[in-house]
Amino acid sequence: MVRAVKKLFKSNYLFTLGVIVCVFWIVMAILAPVVSPYDPIEQNAELRLEAPSLAHLFGTDNFGRDIFSRVIYGGRYSLLAGLLTVFIAGIIGTFYGAIAGYVGGKVDNIMMRLSEMILSFPSLILAMIINAVMGSNLFNTMFALVIVAWPTYARLMRSVVLSVKENEYVEAAEVLGASKIRILTKEIIPNSIQSVLIMATTDIGNQILMFSTLSFLGLGSAPPTPEWGMMVSDGVEYFNKFWVAGFPGLAIFTMAVGANFIGDGLRDLLDPKLRKQF
């Protein structure tokens, strides 16, 4: 495994780049209080909309807040939202899909139609509705993202389970009298989880992007929280002051692309079969 990862680093430069970028943002987010030169919410009316300089690497926004510090702190929210959303949606989707696929029949039909109901909504609009109804804060935004994201995992899991459950070792377990729950958790899920993992890694980038989109639309955390999407939305007002929206935008871009590169690389590593199909 270690050798395979080493090989991956050597052969896939995009993967390496993705890892560097993501590790960079994770370290920055964890060390934010140490790294950032200013308090991200401290206002200073005299330093309004200053262009990038040595004192303020990324310039200042319309409240005179240091954008560099805000971008560093902002990583905390975006990363947290991306990882947590994928984690929770993945767990829900895995179990839901596994149960539907393994039990089959009417249960399968009802469960999958339910999840398709959610899938049939445009995901951004659905997330916006959930958020607007529940009131917008960080927790509710993530909740909305999870609601929108889990059915995809459920569908994938179900399709894998459908083929896995035909295997002889499942039949053997059944013959030996193992309970359905035991078969599901000990035989089926461990043998189907790989494809969900692959999808989850590529999905992190998408979720970060989605989270930023929602907070751009004013449905994220409440100000003055330094959140990337919201910072971009603030910066739109200042068309000719590129740094207000530009740097947080760049942060979203690098983070999303980096996470996608990692996802791609991991897919190549874990599932060479899938790679050939594409």
Partner: peptide, 27 residues
């Protein structure tokens, strides 16, 4: 929300800790 952020920062000076809650007009 810009005005709210400014007010929150001003009131922090006299020890009032303001927590901004965003709500949609329509919702």
């Amino acid at each position: 929300t810009d005005l709210a952020q400014k007010v929150a920062s001003d009131l922090a000076e006299i020890g009032i800790n303001v927590n901004i809650v965003s709500e949609a007009w329509a919702a």
